[in-house]
Design a protein around this nucleic acid. Sequence first.
DNA 1: AATTTAGTCCTTTTT
DNA 2: GGACTAAATT
Length: 814
Amino acid sequence: MARFDEDDAFEGAVSLSARAMARTGAGMRPEPYLDGLNPAQREAVETMDGPVLMLAGAGTGKTKALTCRIAHLMTTGRAQLNEVLAVTFTNKAAREMKDRIGALLGGSIEGMPWLGTFHSVCVKLLRRHAELVGLKTSFTILDTDDQIRLLKQLILAANMDEKRWPARMLAGLIDGWKNKALTPDRVTGGETAAFDHRGSELYAQYQERLRTLNAVDFGDLLLHMVTIFQKYPDVLERYQRWFKYILVDEYQDTNVAQYLWLRLLAQGHKNICCVGDDDQSIYGWRGAEVGNILRFERDFAGAKVIRLEQNYRSTEHILAAASKLISGNEGRLGKTLWTEAQGGEKLRLIGHWDGEEEARWIGEEVEALSRGTRGMAPYGLESQAILVRASHQMRAFEDRFLTIGMPYRVIGGPRFYERMEIRDAMAYFRLAISPEDDLAFERVINTPKRGLGDKAQQKIQIEARENGVSLVEGARLLLAQGGISGKGAGQLRAFVANVDRWNAVVRAASPAAARSPAEDDDELFEVLDDAVPPANDHSHLRLAEEILEDSGYVAMWQNDKTPEAPGRLENLKELIKALEQFENLQGFLEHVALIMDNESKDSEAKVTLMTLHGAKGLEFPVVFLPGWEDGLFPSQRSMDESGMKGLEEERRLGYVGITRAEEVCYVSFAGNRRVYGQWQSQMPSRFIDELPPEHVDVMTPPGLNGGGYGSGYGQSTLGSQIDARAASADVYNSPGWKRLQTRGVQSQTPSRPRAVTVENEFDVGDRVFHKKFGYGEVMGTEADKLVVEFDKAGTKKLIASFVVPADTADDVPF
DNA sequence: AATTTAGTCCTTTTT
DNA sequence: GGACTAAATT
């Protein structure tokens, strides 16, 4: 587990590199890792000085190149591990690099202190220089939830209608500005019109509020550091000299702020190596600028561009399909991926009647593959993944997997630290550490219920504001002057006393909590080197338990009779357990703020369910790509908001999806899908027509032309092939697919033709039957859709093919 | 003050 | 269908 006790990492780092040097001296071949590299990778490793841009296609071994490069810097004595800055986007990537570097250099190490995500590195830096932007070194990091609540308050205070101007929207705007490294005063031009012309004004207020709360949000971590580097050249210079080499992973995902940050740091020696793949840029919506790749050669004159093009991951068919798809994008830097692998399975394309059937089919296919009944060696559940465009697609699969008892894991779903009970508990911890944390106070003051409702809370707010103090102090004053009555008063008094007591324990345990920032730069790195982690006596564990007990929070869930209560108590226990690995509550909270991941490590084999975004950087022998339907994938919203750029990003997402597969890749779509509870007929994704027919096996069952495919886009090469192949049905006569065909005929064929042809057959007043809603009467018709007033289910708008005349209901085996 | 109910939006992707 | 909010009910 990554640690945020920044100081102790140095010991291991230094001794490791000493060991590596010693080995060199002992006459062993110093660079055994070079042998396993292809020429391009080797060049990327050995070109150590000056700017390098490594364009690494999917599955071309870029992490290998990157980690070998770091190892090479060590063994050639260019730098110490703690003088290398290496940034990634995800904690997972950072962890993997640490592990692999450790393995290369022959020892397991806690890690390089400056290898981490942009955010975690920035936290470390900002803790040292917080005072330069008006913060205390103990600042807290707000998550999106806190951010939204804060903004909501500001919007209300500005007398704006929070319905028309939702806090989420403002949060998005502010995030966008921060991604572009724009401080409130720099928001200009058309942007000032944002949010009823009050966007930048509210942004300024928000920043002010954060400062008084001694807090930062995610965007601030980078923004503040950029500000500091720009305003204090001496600070910047220190770091320019300290970081002798800079490496950047997933460079295509950097936003403007990150780009500026990197450019500032690399300005001196220009030993910067950026690794990226413009074809895998999928975070444009979050402010990532593919343009940063193009700018690289301009900003770093004489940059060496190295292309990694040999793919070690996928079969030739999968690679060919992915390459063909991505070739539809314009303005690529261009790479030609190739592989030595020959043969293998073609991409498999299959259409389904609706989303539920798609989930059912995939569930059965996963099971069949895992038992090896597809004429192939078995693929265990852990080697299969289902990658969806949007997380709501996961529900169909979860439902299905639960009913058939298939073990699965969801990655990127609701995360442990985002659960209500965990966030409540952490708010209590925050309050114990710093009672002036008003956001935490607000969260838990009436959880569990203490009879302190809106009225009482308002009084506290007013009291606090009038006296310019925190909410706890406000509450204290209010109590002293008897401004609060009856039951609530006693409870509030107890609450304040609890906070005082917890805080006293925290202070007694770690006087360092109030450590002062490094005053002068000379001390900066020595402080890091010399710090010795205090002994971990686990006293914070007891405190944490006490807090949850004393506050009545545990009791609240114990008395709760709802079915989820036991699970929540279980989660709280887990939370306490997680605390063990930290020396104090502060360290833990920081860890949580930045590392929101939640990998359960139980050993049972499970299918993986996650979004395409979440899958970047991963690979699986078998990959399922469901929901390839226009509007869903490519996402309508993406196209509406960003037009051609959006479509191209979606296409890259498809490319990422296909290239996750090593051996087998399924693409599927459904003819009908429920969207916002309404049935919609779906068109197969335009990307399906862009796949190369010679690398695709079409497996679509017959009788499925009602969804409208084949009438598709452009030349529709595959679209027409679908019909042809389906009609001749020869796919089904190949040995592997017999079972599928049988099942298909039994469960689908009878209802299909009828359902498809009844379109527009109804008139107002007809009695109809629907498999879910029962009987009803047609109230209106509109193209292929009907408005039906059901006897039991109310009025619904739905596709005509989903109902049948009421008198034939008995014939339809739904 | 707290719980229940009805009505309104919606849904991309996340460090 | 579900999450969230505002109104209605206890």
